[in-house]
Amino acid sequence: MGLARMIGTVLGTGYIKPAPGTWGSLVSLPWAWVLHVIGGLPLLALGIIAAFLKGWWATAQMTRGQEGHDPSEIVIDELVGQWIALLPLSWAAWSMGISILAMWPGWIAAFVLFRLFDIWKPGPVGWADRRGDALGVMLDDVIAGVFAAIGVLVLAALYHGVL
């Protein structure tokens, strides 16, 4: 397995059937936890940037000369989007000095909301997906992750009585 394929499929996770995108999101959760535990919000943010750049490159390599711009086995985009959806939890845990696992309902919300926005592809998520290139493959999940992160913040505010 070449480097681009290892990155793009997140070490082969993209070959798990059915629903490789959901598996990619699920596999990204413990990795996000590890990054947060080692370096808090700053390391998770750096991880997102590094995974995005490597994912963009890997997706371009894997789709070069192919008709399909977003094969189902490419799930590095789901990892990036899922990590973005978890940013509010990382920020809260890091800034308040509490365990990120204490916010387990937020993990569930981040996972469900990210998958919802990634599958539904509302507005700008669908626009990015329709670009038909490696950047679009990555961007649609970045935007879905941002939408999910906003959803996590809204749900947390409702739960804690802020809204």
Results as ranks from 00 to 15, higher is better:
Ala4Val: 10
Val112Ser: 03
Ala19Ser: 05
His69Ser: 14
Ile119Phe: 09
Thr13Met: 05
Phe117His: 09
Val112Thr: 09
Leu53Asn: 14
Ala19Cys: 03
Ala85Thr: 09
Ile150Met: 11
Ala50Met: 12
Asp140Cys: 01
Val137Ser: 01
Pro20Met: 06
Leu158Trp: 15
Leu29Thr: 14
His160Gly: 15
Leu101Ala: 15
Pro71Thr: 08
Ser90Tyr: 09
Ile84Tyr: 08
Leu155Lys: 04
Ala32Thr: 09
Pro20Arg: 06
Met103Leu: 14
Ile74Ser: 03
Gly123Ser: 03
Ala149Tyr: 05
Pro122Glu: 10
Ile74Gly: 03
Trp57Ile: 11
Phe117Ala: 09
Ser72Lys: 15
Ala148Ser: 10
Leu29Gln: 14
Ala58Glu: 05
Tyr159Met: 08
Gly136His: 01
Asp129Thr: 01
Leu158Ser: 11
Asp77Arg: 01
Leu43Met: 13
Thr9Ser: 15
Thr63Ala: 08
Phe117Ser: 09
Thr9Phe: 06
Pro18Asp: 10
Gly47Ala: 09
Asp140Glu: 04
Ile98Arg: 09
Ala102Thr: 13
Arg5Phe: 09
Gly40Leu: 04
Ile98Asp: 03
Met96Val: 05
Trp33Arg: 10
Gly39Ser: 11
Gly106Tyr: 12
Asp118Arg: 00
Leu43Val: 13
Glu73Ile: 05
Gly2Cys: 06
Pro124Ala: 12
Ile49Ser: 04
Ser90Lys: 11
Gly136Phe: 01
Ile48Pro: 07
Gly81Met: 01
Ala110Pro: 10
Ala19His: 03
Leu3Cys: 02
Val37His: 03
Thr63Cys: 08
Leu139Thr: 00
Ala51Met: 15
Gly106Asp: 13
Gly126Trp: 05
Leu101Cys: 10
Trp57Pro: 11
Gly81Cys: 02
Leu11His: 04
Arg64Asp: 04
Gly151Val: 03
Ala109Phe: 12
